[in-house]
Amino acid sequence: MIEELKNTSASDIAAAILKARRNLGTASGLVFTLVVVTDSRHFNRVLGAAMESGREHPSRILVVVFGHAAATRLDAEIHTGEGVPGDVVALHLSGELTQHADSVVLPLLLPDSPVVIWWPNECPIDPADDPIGALGTRRITDSSGSADHLAALIARAGNHAPGDTDLAWTRLTPWRALLAAALDQYHGRITGALVEAAPGNAPAELMAAWLETRLSVQVDRVPGPSGGITSVRLHSLAGDVAVSRQPGNSMACYNIPGQPPREVALPRRDIQQLITEELRRMDPDDIFEQVVAQVLVRAKRGEINVSGRSQPRVRRDEADQK
């Protein structure tokens, strides 16, 4: 790439040199290897998202694409430059090789630095036990990318290993931050809670499980209009702490007992923003581990409706007797 600077100054030239050097990227500056596992149907979309996240995280990105052809074959495309500070390598695998993808990935990992595996769509039943999954220190799945979100979430919860996270959890961070900030200010006792969301919403189940582990109160899941979580309420004697957002709205209403209601920006985040948040942490997410354990407890109590049809909620006292 040739960049021309017209009517410029020495400091602009120096800045352009620096930028060019960064864009070129050298392996010594790359901080981790990101392995994205997908199929040919999703390849273009996934490659775009991976390159986008590579812009923020200088890394080596290996996109492993499983093809359906019978012949054993490995094709690769290497993208460098193009504004991405790092290497992007697409690996197309087919035939018997799809069973041995780890043999292709292993030699291409950067020395020493962490390895992150990301399944943007369907993922193995047990990610940590998968041949590619086993290479990673961090494994990122997205139960909202599966056909049945709740079934996927429960499968992930059942096979959770340290280092696993799910983007359904990442989607909750801004909500959780607002709720935590509310309880920084409001010190009344919380007696119960409610999460309102469309049925079959994985983040809503994680929210309910999180509130249950943290607050040790009954958390009700009530159906709401479509569009993800629409409201979270924490009950107390003085009134509800509540964050609610109407579908399609990027402003949420924020209520704390004893304070005037206020509006706060709570936009939905796109996949790049989510993956960027995920890639910020290379250590296991202990809180997520506690929360998925609680998801299993709630599922066992029948509080999670996997089939998506309505089902009577189990009362807290009944659940406790089991």
Partner: peptide
């Protein structure tokens, strides 16, 4: 005193 906070919860 905030039950929703945990030092390990570094996302928040």
């Amino acid at each position: 005193s905030n039950p929703l906070r945990d030092p390990q919860d570094r996302r928040l």
